[in-house]
Design a protein around this nucleic acid. Structure first.
Length: 195
DNA sequence: CATGGGATTGACT
DNA sequence: GTCAATCCCATGC
């Protein structure tokens, strides 16, 4: 179980260090293989507009889950980071299924492990994470994040699916995982060893 | 109060 | 490759 201090750091450092950790909800769990970091200082972040009914969770204490509805259909989960009052969070974009595969298959209606959690909307469906978990604690709540046992090779590049601040290289993937939502073209890829 | 858009996905050409 | 589904909420009149 990660503690609050883990999240009370630069959102980009947390995004890197979350790759390889295990996200668990109930009996379903997966190893995080893809993250993106968002900070109030740039316009792609929901917190950029300030505190509103939608964004107030982002400004809460580190270690809180920010779950919101995307495109009217999907729930996306973030880990709130940095000190209370700063709007910053890590979007969890893909998992490699570890526990509860049959439960995930039932929720997703698909069989192949690489189809269960290879996208931010897919993994919340597979783990049964809904909007009611917005604001819950990742440090001792219904959703937990377990520390990684090995440090993966990290691939870094631009974030996906956004129109604003799309040039910022704040997407982080396990360079050796086949469970990411979408691989980079080889020319765009930057690989480095994890810290 | 009406309207437009979005950190996506799955189905279809 | 294109495109619709679907809904909360931020914005503007």
């Amino acid at each position: 179980m990660t503690d609050q201090a883990f999240f009370a750091r630069s959102v980009h450092d947390v995004a890197r260090d979350l790759v390889g950790c295990v996200l668990r909800h109930g009996s379903a769990a997966g190893r995080i293989v893809e993250t993106e970091s968002y900070h109030e200082s740039e316009p792609a972040c929901h917190a950029h507009i300030g505190v509103t009914a939608r964004t107030h969770t982002l400004f809460r204490e580190p270690g809180v889950a920010y779950v919101y509805r995307s495109y009217g259909i999907h729930a996306l989960i973030n880990a709130v980071c940095e000190e209370k009052g700063i709007g910053a969070a890590v979007l969890i974009r893909a998992l490699e299924p570890v526990d509860g595969l049959d439960e995930m298959r039932a929720r997703r209606g698909l069989q192949r492990p690489e189809d269960l959690c290879s996208g931010p909307g897919k993994l919340t469906q597979a783990l049964g994470i809904g909007l009611e978990l917005n604001g819950s604690l990742l440090t001792g709540g219904p959703i937990s994040i377990e520390p990684r046992t090995a440090t993966p090779r990290l691939a870094e590049g631009p974030r996906i699916g956004i129109t604003k601040a799309a040039e910022l290289p704040w997407r982080f993937c396990d360079a050796d995982s086949r469970h990411v939502s979408r691989p980079w073209p080889p020319a765009m890829r930057r690989v480095r060893s994890a810290a």
